[in-house]
Amino acid sequence: MSTTRTIKWAAILALFLGCQLHKVCGDSTVDLSPLKACFEAQHDLKSISADFTQTRALKTLKSPISVKGHFWFASPDRFRWQLGDPPKTIIIGAKDGTIVIHPSLKHAEIGALSTSGSFPTQKVFEMMGLSGKRTLEEFQKRMHVLSLKTSGTRCHLEMLPKDPSAARGLSSINFDFDCVTGQWLDFEIVTREGSSIRTEFNNVRTNSVINGEVFDYDLRGFTVNHEKK
């Protein structure tokens, strides 16, 4: 069996069997002051509204797939993640759970993704301090910082969760932000089998008034699944 073929199989099985493939070598000498500044800048954050473009570069696809969407966040923990225009998938989350809605299928799943951890965006929100006022110390308890590079006001952070179950199958989570304003620029999930999912934000508006209805959804006529914990 060739090495290439073995790697392919490893990738497949990491997905099918939930394998734990990562090995982490964190750099304790990385200067994290830009990250600290980013957290401090977010302390006064009340809301975010932003467009995004998600690029899915899978090893199994010849060319990446791009999807547009919109994101709303209201402090302390409510968010709406809307994929596609018109939306194909909507995720509305709060501290106590997540609803995944498929409007075209008239189907919703309550609690499903947040409990299984398959919706990493929410985890990223938590890690990056959107859910609650996070400090650098708390962040370091949960994350290995692989590297932090600064270019002008743009900071590029590469990290991995310390929790092996959260880091399962991941090579790194990359996060770009503005060192001065603390504003998010993009984040990327890179898997060990070589695929990546990159989300770039644009038209970011912070602390604007967000209508509370954004975080509600009328599920009448929908089939709703409640995932067992």
Partner: peptide, 15 residues
């Protein structure tokens, strides 16, 4: 793959 929000699911479907 395009409509999925779960990275695990989209990768699994790719294989």
């Amino acid at each position: 793959i395009q409509s999925s929000e779960s990275p695990a699911e989209m990768l699994r479907k790719g294989y």
